[in-house]
C-alpha cells in the first residue's frame, strides 16, 4: 500500500470475449438511464425557488440534522460493536454478526414495522418508555432511531473489515511499548482504521439521509419534525412533481458526492 500504484498496462494477455460488452452496456444503461431521465426532468428555471421553498428548506434542514445525529449515534455505538466483533472471541459472535447486519438486506418497510413493535407505543419497550414519560412516537427522535437502525450496519461492516485488515500487530507492539488498552485504542487502533471509519460514517450518513420506509412507518410525517427529504419527495410526488424532482435531484447530488468520497477506499 506504500506509494502510488503503478499504472496498469493498457493491454493484458487475456482478453474478454466481445459479447460480454453487450450485457455490460445494458446493465450500465439500466443504472444510468433513470438518473439521466430524472435530471432531464428537472425544471432548471424554477429550481432555486423550488429548493428554497419553506417546505423544502424545512425538509433539508431536518434531514441534515437527523442524518448527522444518526451518524454520530452510529459511530458511538458502531465502533464498540465493530471492536467486539473483530477483536473478541465470544461464543456465538458469528451469529450476532449476521443478525446485526440484517437491516442491510431488510426491506425498509419491514424495518419500520420491527421498530414499531419495539419502540412504538404498543411495542416491546414502548410501554416502559411511556411509563417513564418518554414517547418517541412522532418525534424527531423517532426519525433518528429509524435512521440509526438502517445505517448502523454500514458502519459496523466497514469498520470491522478495516479492523480485520489492519490486524493486531500494531496493537501488540503498542501494548508492549507500554500503552494500556485505552491508549492502544485511542492512539493506535482508531487512527489505523480511520479511513475505514470515515468511509463507514459517510455511508451511514448517506443511508440515513435516504432512509424512507422505516421513517414513514415508524416516525410519521410532519414538516420540520419528522418529514425528511425523502418523505417530502414522496408527498410532493403527486401534487407538485416539479418540487419532487428538484428535491430528488438534491438527494442524487448528495449520493453522488458520497460515492465519490468513498470510492477507492479499501474498506467496503
Amino acid at each position: 500500500m506504500r506509494g502510488a500504484r503503478p499504472a496498469r498496462p493498457a493491454s493484458t494477455g487475456a482478453e474478454l470475449p466481445r459479447w460480454v460488452l453487450v450485457p455490460a452496456a445494458v446493465g450500465a444503461l439500466l443504472v444510468l438511464l433513470p438518473l439521466v431521465a430524472l435530471v432531464a426532468r428537472v425544471p432548471w428555471a424554477e429550481l432555486p425557488a423550488l429548493l428554497t421553498s419553506e417546505s423544502s428548506r424545512a425538509a433539508l434542514a431536518l434531514s441534515l440534522r437527523t442524518a448527522s445525529a444518526a451518524t454520530a449515534l452510529c459511530v458511538l455505538l458502531g465502533v464498540p460493536m465493530a471492536l467486539v466483533l473483530a477483536r473478541t472471541a465470544l461464543p456465538g459472535l458469528h451469529v450476532l454478526r449476521s443478525l446485526v447486519l440484517l437491516p442491510l438486506v431488510l426491506p425498509p418497510v419491514v424495518g419500520g414495522l420491527a421498530l414499531l413493535y419495539a419502540f412504538g407505543r404498543r411495542g416491546l419497550l414502548g410501554g416502559q418508555l411511556e411509563a417513564l414519560g418518554v414517547s418517541v412516537a412522532f418525534t424527531t427522535a423517532a426519525v433518528v432511531l429509524a435512521q440509526t437502525f438502517v445505517a448502523l450496519p454500514f458502519l459496523v461492516v466497514s469498520l470491522e473489515g478495516a479492523l480485520r485488515t489492519a490486524g493486531r500487530r500494531h496493537e501488540e507492539v503498542a501494548a508492549v511499548l507500554g500503552a494500556g488498552p485505552w491508549t492502544v485504542l485511542r492512539r493506535v487502533t482508531l487512527p489505523v482504521v480511520l479511513p475505514g471509519l470515515v468511509s463507514g460514517a459517510v455511508l451511514s450518513f448517506a443511508r440515513a439521509l435516504g432512509e424512507f420506509g422505516a421513517t414513514l412507518t415508524f416516525a410519521g410525517s410532519l414538516q420540520g419534525t419528522t418529514r425528511t427529504l425523502p418523505l417530502e419527495v414522496y408527498l410532493q410526488r403527486e401534487t407538485d412533481p416539479d418540487a419532487a424532482v428538484a428535491l430528488a435531484l438534491l438527494l442524487v447530488v448528495v449520493a453522488a458526492a458520497v460515492v465519490v468520497a468513498v470510492r477507492g477506499r479499501p474498506a467496503l
Binding site: L116, G120, R121, R122, A137, F138, L216, T217, F218, A219, G220, S221, L222, Q223, T226, R227, L231, Y234, L235, R237
Partner: peptide, 21 residues
Amino acid sequence: HPVSEEGSVTDVLGKVTSGQA
C-alpha cells in the same frame, strides 16, 4: 394539531391500527 401529516390516507390508517396514534 396533528402529530403527523401523512402523504396518503393508508399511512394515516396504519398509524391508527398500529396504535401509534
